[in-house]
């Protein structure tokens, strides 16, 4: 059984505002759907790693060698076009409500530390347990 808290947690990850009536309805739907989907886990499959696009099975869709483009520059969009549909802009920038520290703190700024030092660099915390190969794996 899915709990409302679980649905709230997924909605939070997906940045979806869910009014209570919607939440209630979605909880019921998702419960049914997930129960149906859970049957997948009984399907006998080759055990081992998750086949992703690297695996033999999907290679059928991806001819080798890999698809790459030459390192050539094409003209970018004009700034006017780039900003045209933005509902809020400021001085050639896209504008969003101020990222205040409490919000910025838990958002990881991926590898962006050490940007312009005259900017107020706000960092995002990283505590992802699934990140392989971060030196953290063996640094605990």
């Amino acid at each position: 059984m899915i709990t409302p808290d679980q649905v709230r947690q997924w909605a939070r990850l997906a940045r979806l505002d869910l009014p209570d009536p919607e939440l209630e309805r979605l909880q019921g739907d998702l419960d049914k759907i997930l129960e149906f989907v859970r049957a997948l886990q009984d399907v006998p499959v080759e055990s081992g790693s998750v086949p992703d696009s690297v695996s033999e099975s999907e290679r059928g869709n991806h001819p080798l060698p890999s698809v790459e483009r030459p390192d050539e520059v094409a003209p970018p969009l004009s700034r006017e076009v780039a900003l045209e549909e933005a509902r809020s802009t400021s001085d050639g920038h896209f504008a969003v409500p101020a990222v205040v520290e409490s919000e910025a703190q838990y958002e990881r700024r991926t590898g962006s530390a050490g940007g312009d030092s005259n900017e107020n660099t706000v960092l995002r915390e990283d505590s992802d347990s699934r990140e392989p190969g971060s030196s953290g794996d063996s640094n605990l």
């Binding site: 997924w10 997906a14 997948l40």
Partner: peptide, 22 residues
């Protein structure tokens, strides 16, 4: 929501991973 769940930590392998295998 469903897609967020099946990719989330702790459920990825049982849902997304298994679906890829199937």
């Amino acid at each position: 929501l469903l897609g967020t769940f099946v990719l989330s930590a702790g459920y990825y392998d049982a849902y997304y991973g298994q679906a890829q295998r199937v």
